[in-house]
Every structure is written in C-alpha cells, then in structure tokens.
Design a binder for these strands. Structure first.
Lengths: 226, 226
DNA sequence: AGAATGCTTCGACTACCATCGAACCATGGA
DNA sequence: TCCATGGTTCGATGGTAGTCGAAGCATTCT
C-alpha cells in the first residue's frame, strides 16, 4: 500500500483552490510577485505567503529575489506538464468555461514591470541595444557600452546622473511572456519615464498594461528599434 | 481569476492519502472491489465507500456491478496519465525513500502503466524507435515514422488496424522513474499484449511489476533493442 | 536617518472533511 | 423464507488546514 513516490502530498498541494489559481497563473512560464499571486488567487497577502511557502516546500515553485520583490515561477516543465495533465482530466469532469480576454494580449505586448517596461517591445529594445553596443553583456553583468552615453544623451537621458546611487543603472530582468531578458535598473526606469512623459503611451489604472498611442508607437520604434 | 477547468477539485481528490492509494492500486489497469480497495488504502469499509463515491463523482473511476460485487477501475488512460505525471513530480520532491527496496527496483525496470509498458525497458525501447525512425517526434506530437509500418508488420502487429479509433496510436507518456518518455497509445497497448501473449513476461498478481523470463528478456532485447 | 513598500511570521478562529460504529439496503445461496 | 456477505448511508467526533489581522523583517527611496 505504500509504494512509489508520495503522490498525495503533491496532489493535495495543487488541491487547494488558492494554490491552484496561483499555479495556473504561472502556467505561461512567467514569474509573478507574491502580491500579484495573492490578487490572482483572491486571498490576502499572509494567506498567499503561507501557500507559497508550502509550494516551495514541495518544490513546485522556484523563487528569485529581485530587490524587495520575490518572483515566483514554476519549478520546471515537469510541473507544468503535471498541471496540464490534471487540467485534461478536469476538463472532462466539469464544464469548462472559456474566456479568451483581450487583456492578456496587450499584457504580452507592453506592460510595466515594477518600474520599467516589459513585454515584446521591451525585449526587442533590449536586443537592439545589445546589437548596437549601446549596452554590453559581460557575464551576468550588463553595463553601458561604448555607444551608450551618446545615444541616450541624444534623446535627453543623462546617463551620468544615473550612476551615483547604490542602485545599478543597468540590470537584466527576465521577461515572463517572452522568456528573455529586458532592461531594468535606473536606466530602465528613465526610459519608461520618457515614454510616459512624452505621452507615447498611457497606463489604464489598476493594470500593468502599457497602451501605446499610434504616433507614440511610431516614435518608440524609430527611436529604439530602428 | 477563475478560469479554465477546475483543477483544484480534481487534484484534491487525488490529494487524500487513502484515495491516492486506491488510485495507485488501480494503475495496473485492473478492477478491484470496494473491500479490496479499503484494505489497500488502509481504511474501514465505510470510509472507503465514501471515498469511492467522491472519485466516481469526479469521474476518475468507473464501476461495474457483477453480482453483489462492485468492481472499480480507472476511468481511462487520461486519468492514468495524470497519476503518472503527478508521480513524476513527487519522485523529485518527496523524501526519496531511503533505499530503493527490491520491489522498487523491479518496478523501475519494467511495470505496467495502465495499459502499456513503462520503466527502463520501455524508455530504452522508445529511444531505439526514435533512432531507427520507426516513430518520429514532431513538435509535441509523435507519429509512426517511415520505417514503422514495416517493422511492426514483421513482428505481427498490424498498425493499419490501430489508427481507426479516436484514440491516438502513438502518444508519449512521461516515465516517473526515469525522466524520459515512453510509448503509450494503442500501439503501446499492442506491444504490451505481444509481450504477454508470447509469454516473454508474466505479471505477479496485485502488482504493476512486469517480470521478464530469461528467454523472454532475450527475445525482447533482440526484437526491440537490437 | 526616516518613511514607504513588499513580504513573512505569529496567533487565534473557523470550517471542512476524513474517520469509524451502527444501522440500513441488496444480492445470492440454503 | 431466513441467513450470510458485500456495500452504502447516517450521525457524531476529532484533527487538520485555510483564513485573516497585527506585528515583525528586509529592502529601497527620499
């Protein structure tokens, strides 16, 4: 009667509604903070924290501390595969409700990641910065490249003023919709500020979405993606 | 926040130790009575009955009344597949039982996964099929490869007769002991049937273990692993 | 340094559910 | 018809786990 791995332990972790909501929210391979997951699960922050600790204990999640945020993500494809298998059974058991929601799409395109831009646009911008040696990756660290200071000065961002704090100017941040890096740090913040003060985009309140205006998108593309 | 199928409901069904024991006891594809399952799960008959009702309600089990006995069995391959997936995660997370007892060892070598072969032998066979292009992986789907039809015809398995149902002929199933795929689907079932009808192996009753006879192992190896 | 934000820990409360004994149905055999 | 056996239902009990408010760390921004 006791044979094989302890499947009840794992299944009961997934078996709580709050935890199940958290896990499904992470099924896109992205990483979310504890607060975001609390909101997603519809529970208070303490409750969410308790659940997250349990999921960590069961090795279903990994966590990455970035500043005062803690980004939780699925521990691996095997976990995702399991959730998928459970969903398959659940779809047969109960009525599934479908809701495509336009919100997801615009989230992937451009959104705020705490204090900088994330999503497709941000990743594309980062790639171009690296290609043009505006910034350079050096091992795990990234720095302003030879072409950097001039480039940002030309668009009104004074990079010399960004380096004096203890906060790093450039930092790589993992994007959850695309699974690649984008630019964080004080320079990332400065760029987002630029986008918003120039009114190239606006932020619908209560959401992370960044909505570009048509001319704003054009300006952004010629400036950062040309 | 509530979207998609109700995965928590299904997972919580598996999340109870008694129910989990029942389900694993049925993983060999057989059918057991309520009393047998009560014994297997280590609970009283009333308790077992209550659990069985819940599993039925969740459509994880089917029941067949024969006389005054009621035979319970897994509802289908999808349920078996889910249990395997959970086992895979649990094997990495769990307290890794101290030493892999003798029973575990033969389980890892060859066992039944609902209706097809699993374990080291099955994974090795799958690898060889892929190497020889007997089957091909295409994205996430797998299909019969160019060398497939001829190969199976030569050993007395008519693949043309396997594709007409709604059930896929080839499906990858993740092995929990090894971390790799093995072959499921109606072709997987046909191969297991072949092994058993040829008496290359026998199945000790009340267990998922598949015990190869010495000549049977040799036949299996020359045929499938050569 | 001080304030603010993100997150975790602690303690108390509550609700749910697994559990079993006893009684209750159903089938099969004398 | 009367028992015997396999299962289910009922009622009461107990343990466990989810829940949140308040307080405690940690980090960052001013």
């Amino acid at each position: 009667m006791k044979e094989g791995p302890d499947i009840a332990r794992i299944a009961s972790l997934v078996g709580d509604p709050a935890r199940a909501n958290m896990l499904t929210a992470l099924m896109d391979g992205g990483a979310l903070t504890a607060s975001e997951l609390a909101l997603e699960a519809g529970v208070s922050l303490p409750t969410a924290s308790s659940h997250l600790a349990k999921l960590m204990d069961g090795k279903l999640l990994t966590v990455a501390s970035q500043g005062r945020h803690r980004y939780y993500a699925l521990a691996g494809t095997e976990v995702a595969n399991m959730i998928e298998a459970i969903s398959g059974v659940a779809a047969h058991s109960g009525p599934r409700r479908a809701r495509p929601g336009p919100r997801d799409k615009s989230m992937r395109e451009a959104r705020v990641c705490y204090d900088h831009l994330a999503g497709d646009h941000a990743v594309a911008m980062f790639d171009r910065f690296v290609a043009e040696k505006i910034i350079v990756r050096d091992d795990e660290e990234i720095r302003l490249g030879p072409a950097g200071q001039g480039f940002f000065a030309a668009i009104g961002i004074d990079t010399s003023g960004l380096g004096n704090s203890r906060r790093p100017m450039c930092r790589a941040c993992l994007d959850w919709s695309v699974r690649r890096s984008h630019l964080a740090g004080s320079l990332g913040t400065a760029i987002l500020d630029k986008i918003l003060t120039e009114k190239w985009a606006r932020r619908p309140s209560g959401s992370r979405v960044v909505e570009f205006t048509p001319p704003g998108r054009k300006a952004f593309e010629t400036l950062f993606l040309a």
